[in-house]
Design a protein around this nucleic acid. Structure first.
Length: 488
RNA sequence: GGCCCCAUCGUCCAGUGGUUAGGAUACCGGUCUUUCAAGCCGGAGACGGGGAUUCGAGUUCCCCUGGGGCUACCA
């Protein structure tokens, strides 16, 4: 019964691609995929001074990194190309001309500074700051005079004085605004570029968008847009306004709250699947208790009914947990491939000095411990460099113990004798050494760990030693023995 | 200030008139164990307030309170 579903994400390239934008993108994508519809990416670069190519690139990078592919849009094109509003100016001009011809819009010659001044004055008097419509009923001679003066002009939409504009919001139900609350909004700026309200309405129609899913911050623009659609005789899409993503203090998430850009999370070692899963659950629920959902499961379960109405605080701790889950369930190949860049940027080119296989075995040892890829360099540093010092706590507990040096010597001798240096062989050698020393295995293991890694925690000792390799292990043990002798 | 939206554990979600109000995270305890994690088991932790409707309200309605968004020639 329903025609093909077409949705779009229409970011303005005026800043980084942040969490909130990512979620809107994701919901649109899920909605399209769930219904076998089309997901379109459109760049709303109508703000000439703040848009940049660099931001466009970053936005597309981020969306691709998240794995949300668009069916129509920049670089993939489609039947409604171009997908940059800055390249569709004629369309908006035509629309504005029609509005003008119909008397639904009029030129406004007020300068921004004047507007600003009047706005302040209204605020001072405690009345709602709104455009006073002084250019709405300009006489023809006045217009010609202003025009002759070469005054810049914007085009404003003439909103009716009374009436109500309402729609059935997909997530909120009926929303209603009094037209008397609306002022005569700008539909085309003096630089000849359309305003968001107009461009968006025109494009949504031209691109045959059926559902507009966007942030709640745009809800008050909706009645204005509806006026534009109606004046132009265009069919209305369905609107759905998504709740905001909030900072821990429940205000709108912004830079001052720390990382908000998707690229920042990427740099911090989060993986796309975890990001997507986590963000999906910020304001949407499959209806059951599942927390970890694959993309397929999300697509399958996604519905607008499952979207909540209230704002959701972004809980970075839960994201970390979820990222850990994804890291742990990731295939060894993918995990290693994703981990490697983080090691190299932090530790220099480990690839030059260490075999690929060694690096892979190292990071694999930490797969179940890491919450983010970014903590890998710190976690695995001792695999690439000899420990320069020993943790204080460990030193007091193990190295200053009577006979610590003998313990290490015994372990070293036992390991020295090994031909095969693998987990099992190491384990039995170490345990045998402990037995010979007539002590429990625990203290021997801890002392050995400290001697070979400088730390009190980390991967299982036997696996760790096996990866480190016999030569390095023996060397480090010897050094530690010397260190202990020097302690006196 | 005006308009619009929202309101269940600290946080994210279930719960669509009858539930010991459920799960996840974070926190605490236990267990496993060579450490740290992970896992497993357990604990603590919420319906903002007041009316109304009803035999019965977290669930419906109204008011209050609280929070948020918008209030640009930005989107």
């Amino acid at each position: 019964m329903s025609k093909e579903i077409r949705v779009r994400m229409a970011p303005a390239p005026t800043g980084r691609f942040h969490i909130g934008t990512a979620r809107t993108t994701l919901y649109n994508w899920l909605f399209a995929r769930h219904h076998g519809g089309t997901f379109i990416l459109r760049i709303e670069d109508t703000d000439q001074s703040r848009s940049s190519q660099e931001n466009v690139r970053q936005i597309m990078d981020a969306i691709r990194w998240l794995g949300l592919d668009w069916d129509e849009g920049p670089e993939v094109d489609g039947p409604h190309a171009p997908y940059f509003q800055s390249q569709r100016l004629q369309l908006y001009r035509d629309a504005v001309d029609r509005l003008l011809a119909q008397g639904d819009a009029y030129p406004c010659y007020c300068a921004p500074v004047e507007l600003e001044e009047r706005r302040r004055e209204m605020q001072r008097q405690g009345i709602p700051p709104r455009y006073d419509r002084r250019c709405r009923d300009l006489s023809q001679p006045d217009r010609e005079r202003l025009e002759a003066e070469g005054r810049p002009r914007a085009i404003r939409f003439a909103v009716p004085d009374e009436g109500t504009t309402s729609w059935d919001d997909l997530v909120r139900g009926r929303v209603e605004f009094q037209d008397s609350e609306l002022d005569d909004f700008v539909v085309m700026k003096s630089d000849g570029f359309p305003s968001y309200i107009l461009a968006c309405a025109v494009d949504d129609t031209e691109m045959a968008i059926t559902h507009v899913l966007r942030g709640e911050d745009l809800i008050s623009g909706t009645p204005r847009q509806i006026h534009v659609f109606r004046a132009l005789g265009l069919p209305l899409p369905r609107f759905g306004h998504l709740p905001m993503i909030l900072a821990p203090d429940r205000s709108k998430l912004s830079k001052r709250h720390g990382a908000t850009g998707i690229d920042e999370y990427r740099a911090r070692g989060f993986v796309p699947d975890a990001m997507v899963n986590f963000i999906a659950l910020l304001g949407w629920s499959s209806g059951d208790d599942r927390e970890i959902l694959s993309r397929g499961e999300m697509i399958e379960a996604f519905s607008i009914e499952g979207i909540g109405k209230s704002g959701a605080v972004f809980d970075a701790e839960k994201l970390e947990w979820m990222n850990g889950v994804y890291l742990r369930q990731m295939s060894a190949e993918e995990y290693v491939a994703r981990a490697r860049p983080f090691l190299e940027s932090a530790l220099g080119s480990v690839a030059e000095t260490f075999e690929d296989d060694y690096v892979a075995r190292v990071v694999l040892l930490e797969q179940e411990r890491a919450k983010t890829l970014a903590e890998l360099p710190e976690l695995t540093e001792f695999f690439f460099r000899d420990p320069e010092e020993y943790e204080d706590k460990g030193e007091r507990r193990w190295f200053r113990q009577e006979g610590a040096g003998e313990v290490l010597a015994a372990v070293r001798e036992a390991l020295q004798a090994l031909d095969r240096f693998d987990d099992a062989a190491i384990e039995s050698a170490v345990r045998a050494a402990a037995e010979k020393l007539d002590t429990k295995a625990g203290p021997v293991i801890h002392t050995t760990r400290l001697a070979t890694t400088g730390r009190t925690k980390g991967p299982g000792l036997f696996e760790l030693l096996a990866v480190l390799g016999k030569e390095r292990v023996l060397q480090r043990l010897e050094r530690a023995e010397q260190y202990i002798r020097d302690l006196g």
